[in-house]
Amino acid sequence: MYYLGIDVGSVSTDIVVIDENYNVVESVYLRTKGRPIKAVQEGFKYIKEKIKTNEIAGVGTTGSGRHIAAFLVGADVVKNEITSHAVAALSLDKDVRTIIEIGGQDSKIITLENGMITDFAMNTVCAAGTGSFLDRQAERLEIPIEEFGDYALRSKNPVRIAGRCAVFAESDMIHKQQLGFAVEDIIRGLCEALVRNYLNNVAKGKDIKSKIFFQGGVAANKGMKRAFEEALGCEVFVPKHYNMMGAIGAAILAAERQIKWTNFKGFEIADVKYETASFECSGCSNLCEVAVIKCEDKVIGYFGDRCGRHSGKVAV
């Protein structure tokens, strides 16, 4: 039997299939592009070729789009990203004490003790240093994001970049470029600035102990890994499936639940046409923006109403 894990994030949608021993059998990594339903469907189209619907014994969803994904595929477990990431890391190594997770628009720190989360934090008011920002800088410098880290590793003399704010960091980078610094040095400087920002904001006041795991999409960036190692003075491990850890965690949580009958609707939903629309509810002064999901002109669900007038959940 297999278990399915889906992580619908701001930037990427990851789908993994794991077996009973939590080994990854299949995985797909897609860009969400603001269309979570379509991303999940595309992923299913790919997996459908390899795995049959009736082989799936449980489904877990996570990420910022976990609710809509759960609704779409019929999930058995809907979990937040923090728990999912921790569960996935613990399944690889029971001794992990700190997880640094940097995704598309989130950065998180999770501290663990004896295989149990003891504390966590997420970026609150600032997204400087997350994947979206690095993406944008790579684009601006016309360097493929995949090679961004290699550029940083080639640098001998990093330039100091102001990393407090994403916009000012960009201004500072442009300024340094105009002064004639090498691109490699600027990129390494940027990595160091982002690590500084992370340690001063997200990780402020947290005890960072090794073993340290670095996961999330940004972990692909070797420059960031090295900057973390230099700042923390110890080795930082990047797990093999660093960019899918959330989905793996969700799948493990579904497997742990040991449910008899899964709610899974099947990979066939990849071929169903879904439409989304939205309206502003005028039932009260809250004026909730309600999203509607339609399947072949039939309304199948509502999201975003606070009172449950449309979605039928417990009323506030």
């Binding site: 979990k79 937040n80 923090i82 728990t83 295989g115 989360i117 003891t118 966590f120 997420m122």
Partner: peptide, 25 residues
């Protein structure tokens, strides 16, 4: 007034998870 609900909800859920798992442990 700028608080985003998604991140807020995630933090609360993760915290309750933490408490539950801690107790089980």
């Amino acid at each position: 007034e700028m608080t985003g609900e998604a991140g807020y909800q995630t933090r609360i859920e993760a915290f309750i998870d933490l408490l539950e798992r801690r107790r089980r442990y």
